[in-house]
Simulated scan of single mutants.
Amino acid sequence: MTVRSAWLPANQQSRSDTRLAPTGTMSPTGPLTSRPGALPGGTPLLATGVAAMQVRIDPGRAVIQGTALQGAYPVVLSEAETLTVADGDAQYARIDLVVLQVYDHDYDASGQTAGVLRLIKGVAAAGPQVPATPAAALALWSIAVPSKASAGTGGITWASALTDLRVYTVGAGAILPAAGDTAPGAYVGQYRDTGSALERWNGSAWTAYPAPAAPVGVWQPYTPTWRSDGAAPAVGNGSLSGAYTKIGRTVHVRGRLQIGSTTVLGSGAWFFGLPVPAAVGAIAGIIWAFDVGIAINTGAVFIEDNRTEIVAFTSGSAFPWSVSRPQPWAAGDHLNFTLTYESAS
Score class of each variant (00 low, 15 high):
Val145Asn: 09
Gln258Phe: 06
Pro210Ile: 07
Trp321Tyr: 03
Pro224His: 08
Leu162His: 03
Trp329Tyr: 13
Ala243His: 07
Thr43Pro: 01
Val50Asp: 09
Val311Arg: 15
Ala161Asn: 05
Gln220Tyr: 01
Ala10Leu: 11
His105Arg: 05
Thr225Gly: 15
Pro177Lys: 01
Ile287Glu: 00
Gly180Trp: 04
Ala234His: 05
Gly285Ile: 01
Thr298Cys: 05
Thr298Arg: 06
Thr33Glu: 14
Ala178Leu: 00
Thr340Trp: 04
Pro59Cys: 15
Ile303Arg: 01
Gly238Cys: 07
Arg35Trp: 01
Thr263Arg: 11
Glu199Asn: 00
Gly248Arg: 14
Ser343Trp: 02
Ala172Gly: 01
Ala135His: 03
Ala149Asp: 04
Arg118Trp: 05
Gly332Thr: 11
Leu240Glu: 00
Gly24Trp: 11
Ala137Cys: 01
Ala149Ile: 04
Ala51Asn: 05
Asn336Leu: 03
Gln258Trp: 02
Val167Leu: 05
Ser196Phe: 14
Asn336Arg: 05
Ala126Pro: 04
Gly293Asn: 13
Arg256His: 11
Pro328Lys: 09
Ala243Gln: 15
Ala51Ile: 05
Leu274Cys: 10
Ala136Val: 07
Gly273Gln: 12
Gln101Ser: 03
Leu46Met: 14
His252Gly: 05
Ala109Thr: 08
Leu335Asn: 10
Gly238Ala: 04
Thr82Ile: 08
Ala125Arg: 14
Ala139Leu: 08
Leu138Asp: 06
Ala114Asn: 02
Arg15Leu: 15
Ala183Ile: 00
Ala159Phe: 03
Leu77Glu: 12
Ala6Gln: 14
Asp229Arg: 08
Gln112Tyr: 14
Asp104Ala: 11
Ala139Val: 03
Gly203Asn: 00
Ala213Thr: 03
Thr82Asp: 04
Gly195Pro: 02
Gln220Pro: 00
Ala282Asp: 09
Tyr92Ala: 13
Thr84Leu: 13
Ala331Leu: 06
Ala10Gly: 14
Asn11Ile: 04
Thr308Trp: 07
Asn202Trp: 00
Gly88His: 09
Pro74Asp: 11
Val253Phe: 12
Leu198Thr: 00
Gly155Asp: 01
Ala331Asp: 13
Gly37Phe: 01
Glu79Leu: 10
Thr314Val: 05
Val323Pro: 00
Asn297Phe: 13
Thr182Ala: 06
Val167Gly: 03
Val55Cys: 12
Gln12Cys: 09
Ala211Thr: 09
Val251Ala: 02
Ala21Cys: 15
